[in-house]
């Protein structure tokens, strides 16, 4: 199986349980509509997000990745998001080096009360990723690996 050649991007959003995940729940409570393309993976802290997860997503043909955590200074675990910030500044450059457009990757700070910001971010990132088109960079590689598995 491989990602279909449509321009309906798949976006994965790693969201901190304490802020952005709550903010996304609040967006639901407010019935704030955003594109179906965004899929949330719940993590305890944005600092939990291992760069490996993101590389895997892009390798598998995921079109966009978001990492969302608490605003700097407001981390539920006091310092986790500072590491996130540092880690993903470097991450962007690594992606660029690997031929992935940095516009496919977004690290954002969205608190539990910022439902509107979550909706806006989801819309904005989806629009941007849609503009970039499908992520086919590792399609061939993935296909080969999968057929080797079989």
């Amino acid at each position: 199986m491989s990602v279909k050649e449509t321009n309906d991007p798949k976006i994965i959003a790693f969201c901190c349980n304490w802020c952005t995940y709550t903010g996304a729940d609040l967006a639901g409570l407010n019935r704030s509509h955003y594109p179906e393309n965004v899929h949330i993976v719940r993590v305890p802290c944005s600092g939990r997000v291992n760069p490996q997860f993101i590389l895997r997503a892009f390798r598998n043909g995921c079109d966009g990745v978001m990492v969302c955590g608490c605003h700097p200074g407001d981390c539920h675990y006091s310092t986790g998001n500072y590491f996130t910030r540092r880690r993903f500044t470097l991450m962007k450059r690594l992606l660029e080096y690997n031929g992935i457009d940095p516009g496919r990757f977004h690290a954002r700070w969205i608190s539990g009360s910022e439902a509107g910001k979550f909706r806006d971010t989801a819309e904005e990132v989806t629009a941007m990723v849609r503009k970039l088109g499908p992520n086919t960079r590792y399609r061939e590689y993935a296909r080969r690996e999968m057929s080797a598995d079989e």
Binding site: V43, P44, C45, G47, R48, G80, F83
Partner: peptide, 23 residues
């Protein structure tokens, strides 16, 4: 919080309930 798991170079430390493999 799992901050340690993302910092670990060898993947030796993992978070129960949110293991690397699970995510």
């Amino acid at each position: 919080c799992g901050a340690c798991t993302a910092a670990c170079r060898t993947g030796a430390i993992d978070l129960l309930g949110f293991r690397n493999a699970q995510i």
